[in-house]
C-alpha cells in the first residue's frame, strides 16, 4: 500500500510524544496498523513494551480502543471481545492482539494455541524484538542462538529460537504471515488482507530493538532491512492454502543475491562476541530455514493444484 494512501488515513495509530524509546520498532508497526484499520480495530495488549508505549494516565499514547490485559491472557480476552461484538452484531470490528514475543510465544503460548485451535476471528500481531525488552533484555523463546541478553550475558543464548509463525500455521488457521518493520507497505498489505479474512490470523512482525540489540536508534530500519537482505528473516505469507514468499524476500531465494550475513551481525552489540565459526553456524541455520520455507512453498503449491 502506497505511502500517500497511508498518509491520507485519518486514524494515526501512534500519537506523538508517547513513551516508546527513541527509534522504537513497535511504534512503526503500530503506526501502520492504525493507518490501515484504526477505525475498525480494538487492541488487546498483554504485558510488554506496549504496556508502556500505550501511554501514561490520563493520556493514551496510541489511537485505538485499547484493553491492557495480564501477560498470558491476550488471545483469550480477544476471543471474549470478539464473542461480545458478534452477539452485538458488530461484524465490522477487527479485534487485534498486539503482543510481544513473550506474550505470544512463551507465557501466552497456550492461550494463543487455544484461540488458534478455535479459529477465533481475531488478528494476532507478534511484534518480535527477540527478547523480554520491557524488563531489561532477558532471553525469550524467540531470542536467536548466541545473542547476548541479561540472562545470557556472557556466552549468549544456548538454545535455538522457536518459530511462532510456523507453529501457528500448523494449527490450520486461514492466515499466517511474517513481516518486518523495515517494509511497512508489505506489512500494511498483510494487515489489510488479514482484516478481510474471517478466522484466526497471525502476523509475526520482526522488530529490531535499538537498546535491546545494542545499535544506535537511527539504525532500526537499516537493521530490519538487513535481516531480510541477508536472508536471516524471511517474509512469507500463507493465505487460505496459498503459501508464498513475499516480494521483499523474493530476490533472496537465490543465496548468491543475499548480502553477507556479517553486515547484519556487525551492527548489533548483542552479537559482537561471535566467532567466525559461530557466524558460519548461524548461516547454516539460515540456509536450513530457507530450505524449509521453500519446501513449504512447493508443498502448498502442489497441494493447491491437486
Amino acid at each position: 500500500m502506497s505511502i500517500p494512501w497511508l498518509a491520507s488515513r485519518r486514524t494515526r495509530g501512534v500519537l506523538p510524544g508517547n513513551p516508546a524509546c527513541s527509534g522504537c520498532p513497535h511504534n512503526i508497526g503500530l503506526k501502520v496498523l492504525g493507518r490501515v484499520v484504526g477505525d475498525r480495530a480494538i487492541l488487546v495488549v498483554p504485558a510488554g513494551c506496549t504496556s508502556i508505549i500505550a501511554g501514561y494516565w490520563p493520556r493514551e499514547g496510541l489511537e485505538f480502543p485499547l484493553l491492557h490485559v495480564p501477560f498470558a491472557s491476550a488471545a483469550a480476552v480477544a476471543s471474549g471481545v470478539r464473542a461480545a461484538l458478534d452477539v452485538g452484531g458488530r461484524d465490522d470490528a477487527i479485534v487485534v492482539v498486539w503482543s510481544g514475543d513473550g506474550g505470544a510465544a512463551d507465557i501466552g503460548f497456550a492461550t494463543l494455541s487455544g484461540a488458534a485451535t478455535r479459529n477465533e476471528d481475531i488478528l494476532v500481531i507478534v511484534s518480535d524484538n527477540e527478547a523480554y525488552m520491557n524488563t531489561g533484555v532477558q532471553a525469550s523463546g524467540t531470542t536467536m542462538w548466541k545473542a547476548l541478553t541479561t540472562t545470557s550475558p556472557v556466552l549468549g543464548k544456548t538454545e535455538e529460537r522457536k518459530d511462532i509463525a510456523l507453529l501457528t500455521l500448523m494449527h490450520k488457521v486461514p492466515y499466517v504471515a511474517t513481516a518486518s518493520i523495515g517494509y511497512p507497505s508489505d506489512l500494511a498489505e498483510k494487515i489489510r488482507r488479514a482484516s478481510e479474512i474471517k478466522g484466526f490470523k497471525l502476523i509475526h512482525l520482526h522488530s529490531p530493538c535499538p537498546p535491546g540489540w545494542r545499535f544506535d536508534s537511527d539504525k532500526t530500519v537499516l537493521v530490519a532491512k538487513l535481516a531480510v537482505e541477508t536472508g536471516a528473516w524471511i517474509l512469507w505469507e500463507y493465505d487460505r492454502g496459498n503459501f508464498k514468499i513475499s516480494p521483499p524476500s523474493t530476490p533472496y531465494r537465490d543465496k548468491s543475491r543475499r548480502k553477507p550475513l556479517t553486515e547484519y551481525i556487525k551492527l548489533q552489540g548483542r552479537l559482537a562476541h561471535l566467532t567466525e565459526e559461530d557466524i558460519r553456524e548461524i548461516e547454516r541455520r539460515i540456509d536450513e530455514n530457507w530450505n524449509l520455507i521453500l519446501r513449504l512453498e512447493e508443498y502448498y503449491a502442489s497441494h493447491v493444484k491437486a
Partner: peptide, 27 residues
C-alpha cells in the same frame, strides 16, 4: 442464545469472559 467458548484453561476462561464483559456482554 449465547456464545460458548471452549477454552484451554481456567485462566483463559476468565480472560474470555473478561473481554466479553468489557465489550458489554452479560457473562
Amino acid at each position: 442464545k449465547a456464545r460458548y467458548v471452549r477454552v484451554e484453561s481456567e485462566h483463559s476462561a476468565l480472560a474470555v469472559v473478561y473481554g466479553a464483559s468489557a465489550s458489554g456482554a452479560r457473562v
